[in-house]
């Protein structure tokens, strides 16, 4: 796990924003989280999955979103979505 984490640009607990579009990225970022922000909860590294994907995608993070923020409805529930880092940007400027 330690080596997997070393490849990540983001850390657990960091707030990230999902890009609106990323034509060169993997198609597996659901529309409902695009443009939304969430918190990184787990780092999975680059997962080799030759049965599923041709080639290896960038490192994968689990990102936690709130149903309330995404769908603008009263809810205390959450959505955990696994996203590749090339789809993510820091949600606010990083402090030095």
């Amino acid at each position: 796990m330690a080596t997997a984490e070393a490849t990540h640009r983001f850390q657990v607990g960091e707030r990230v924003r999902v890009m609106q579009a990323n034509p060169a990225g993997s198609p597996r970022t659901p529309a409902y989280v695009r443009g939304k922000s969430g918190i990184v909860t787990a780092l999975h590294g680059s997962i080799e999955n030759p049965l599923d994907h041709r080639g290896v995608y960038p490192p994968l993070c689990s990102v936690l979103f709130s149903v309330h923020e995404i769908f603008c409805r009263a809810s205390q529930d959450t959505l955990s979505v696994d996203l590749h880092e090339d789809w993510l940007a820091p949600a606010e400027p990083r402090h030095r």
Binding site: S26, R28, T29, P30, H44, I47, N49, D52, H53, Y57, L60, S62, L64, Q76, D77, T78, L79, S80, V81, D82, L83, H84
Partner: peptide, 12 residues
């Protein structure tokens, strides 16, 4: 109880 949906969007 928090309800958390796990969307299996990629390699996990």
């Amino acid at each position: 109880v928090e309800v958390r949906v796990r969307d299996s969007t990629s390699d996990v």
